[in-house]
Design a protein around this nucleic acid. Sequence first.
RNA 1: GGUGGGCUUCCCGAGCGGUCAAAGGGGGCAGACUGUAAAUCUGCUGCGGUAGCUUCGGUGGUUCGAAUCCACCGCCCACCA
Length: 364
Amino acid sequence: MSYKVLKTCPDTRARLGILQTPHGEIRTPVFMPVGTRGSVKAMSPAELHELDADIILGNTYHLFLRPGTDIVTKAGGLHEFIGWDRPILTDSGGYQVFSLSKLNKFEKDGVRFQSHIDGSRFFLGPKESIAIQRALNSDIVMAFDDCTPYPCTKEQAVISLERTSRWEAASREQPLNPGQQMFGIVQGSTFKDFRQQSAAELSQLDFEGYAIGGLSVGEPEEAMFECLDWVVPILPDSKPHYLMGVGTPKQIVEAVARGVDMFDCVIPTRLARHGSAFLANGDTMPVKAAKYRDDFTPIDEECGCYACQNFTKAYIRHLLNVGEILGLRLLTIHNLYTYLNLMRQIRQAIADGTFAEFRTRYTA
RNA sequence: GGUGGGCUUCCCGAGCGGUCAAAGGGGGCAGACUGUAAAUCUGCUGCGGUAGCUUCGGUGGUUCGAAUCCACCGCCCACCA
């Protein structure tokens, strides 16, 4: 048993847990910073340690294109290659089926991609994706799925779900390295019967964890929460539940209340590079805005991050304004700190049995 | 002193009689962003809510009509004395 639930919230479905991997423990609920191409953009591993990140993501599609599996294999695996000694979860490339849909074509056993970099053609299916993730030697391997777009008709959803089911079963059959574990991904768009069917089918495959995909792709927030209400209760309780690609701080708190243990999202790092800071209450602040030109206070007086302890909004705005990379770095540090700190507060609240109050206070 | 070139909206810069409130950059401002084709992208950028009003160094003039043509004045840059 690599996952252990330590405590459950008496009032919600929130759980406190520990996920064991060959590169260490992951304390859940967890937020996993996204490092698509072998780097959490603008952050060094030392800084991620300092921020207390338990685990980061990598991406099969992107790392396959560059530097390529041969290089990573030669380096001794992704951990060695990027100098990160804690757990890594690799996404399968299923999201790129969705996000790069203009550049690819479905086939029975996978997707014919055209590289967004040089136009070269290659094929990615469950077999290929898992083989790449095996070469990367990530701690958590994601099954290869088809991330359904939104809006989506029931006819499209059924085709997509059938494809995902087939691909995930094929993914599960692929060998893994010792210690690697694989998570399956529930799809089914915003249709209750499809979501439940998908969750039931996946449970049969006995994955080490269960992800919910195909959300936060444009559907209303309420629809996302509704999907969680359908799906999470029928996922195995003894396994971690991972909501892929989500989300805003308030969405994370709401999803934890619905029994989700793991999250990843590019929002904190991307918004940082685009000039916005997340505040402790979940709101965003456009630090690049003109009104902060002469504001010599930190982004957040209460924040314990390196940026807030040492720099003012006026200075960070100036750095952003003139295009100095330190501005992006400081905001990235701040946003990741805010996210990881939120997760600490969530875990503490569950441990203390006060998560329901925390949730009410936070989302108010 | 002479000859030639120039002065355009915050900046650079196009424009060479009507379709010009004026191309294109830059800068500025605002917005978007959810398993990252993203240090990216989109929109706005003379005033006014509209009708319209005020701009293209200055002042006059030519013309139905001028940023565009003419005269004078001012300033800048070249080269020649």
